[in-house]
Amino acid sequence: MIRTFFVVLLLLGLGAVFAGLMVGYTPDAELNATARYYADNTAADTGAANIVTAIIVTYRGLDTLGEVTVLFLTAAIVALVLAAGREKDPASRIAPPPAGELLTTGSRLLAPLILLLGVYVFANGHLTPGGGFQGGAILASAVLLLLLTDPLRHFGHRLISVVESLSGFIYVLIGVAGVVLAGGFLDNRILPLGDFGALLSAGAIPVIYTLIGLKVGAEFASMLVSLSETEEPR
């Protein structure tokens, strides 16, 4: 119990620090210099209506490439950690009781629609809230629904890794094309900026976000498949 006491004491101290931060806090009335630059110049620089997307894909595109790499590493480590001690023969796994009629029929109806929504979210990332990461997560949720319906369903690891590595490779290629054809690495002006607010506008941003969506979807899907293929040793 002395342990809990110290934990509570620690948290009380932390809470006091937080309260101190909050008491003196008044929200700014004006944007700071960085945010003001983005607000004023995003439309002319990148042609993207969603400023957050412009920051993530173009202004700070290199960071996003790193983020996608971290996610890839996570998926790889999850697969590595779970692969040890896995049943080699998938046929030897005990079949779980069949999913109910509702889940089976529902997933057959919903999975294509969920995939469509995911594609919509990442293809419109430069116009509406959303983008590659959100769309990729939605794609993976369709995979989750299929796995819930039939845990023994076999998803091709090869297909997932081909989608994953191809989209990552093309992403880097587009970045290098920015160095050659436009102002720098991952510059989106290698394609025409188009009409502001149209689906095919903002240069390479929709292409890059589509690639990120596919890559993130494939990574999440591979994590889900790794987790579902692991079972209790008997």
């Binding site: 944007l31 983005y38 607000a39 957050v52 990461f133």
Partner: peptide, 15 residues
């Protein structure tokens, strides 16, 4: 835009 929108940078960071 500069007078109407919130700061986009924290939103990108949180994403």
């Amino acid at each position: 835009a500069a007078a109407r929108i919130v700061d986009p940078v924290p939103q990108a960071l949180v994403l």
